[in-house]
Structures are given as C-alpha cells and as structure tokens.
Amino acid sequence: MGEVGLEAYLFVGAVLFVCGVVCMATKRNGIGVLMGVELVLNGANVNFVAFSRYTPLGLDGQATALFVVVLAAAEAAVALAIALNYYNNHLTIDVDRGNELQG
C-alpha cells in the first residue's frame, strides 16, 4: 500500500499558504484579496487535517478545521458586505483607493 505520508500534505498546505499570501499582497481588487484569505485558511486546514490523521492528535485537528471553515464563511460574508459598501462609496473595488483617512 502506498503511503503518502505527512510531509506531502504539509507541502500542499505550504503551497496553498504561500499562494494565498502572495495573492493578498499583489491583488488590488478587494475580492481578489478575499480569495487570497480563503487560500491561506485552506492551507492551514490541510495541515490540521493531515496532523489529525498522521499523529496521535486525533480528532482535535478535524474539529479545529471545522471551526476554521465556519469562521471563514462568516469572514467572507462580512468582508463581502464591506466590499459592497466600499464599492458603493468609492465606485471601485481597488483597495488602493481607500486612502481617505491618510490625512
């Protein structure tokens, strides 16, 4: 039986995390930034679940990952509401335009 092993899943998690961070850093579209956040959270989730399978941590990893999924959904809802408000006020979704409080 082919064993995939913990490291392989951690690699996938790392790639997801880095992609998310780069996405957050380079996108100027507010919704693109949100997608980056989702990728980061998923990278973390892959790690949680992988640890829950391959180490004696057991169910804790899955439970935490479930909380992360729920919180991510809540975060997306609020962030999207903010993005819509932002669009209503600025008529654009470019996050670099939100500099009115810079004085």
Binding site: V4, I31, M35, V49, S52, R53, V69, A72, A73, A76
Partner: peptide
C-alpha cells in the same frame, strides 16, 4: 483522502457551494 469525510463534505458545502458563490 485523509479520512475526514464530514469535513470534506462541509468544505464542499460551505466553501465551494457557499463562500465562492458569495464571492
């Protein structure tokens, strides 16, 4: 694949079916 059936289904329902649709 990681034997987390419920979590996988939740991921499909909440993330792919919910959050991305919202996005």
């Amino acid at each position: 694949l990681l034997h987390a059936d419920f979590l996988g289904a939740a991921q499909l329902l909440i993330y792919v079916g919910g959050t991305v649709v919202l996005l």
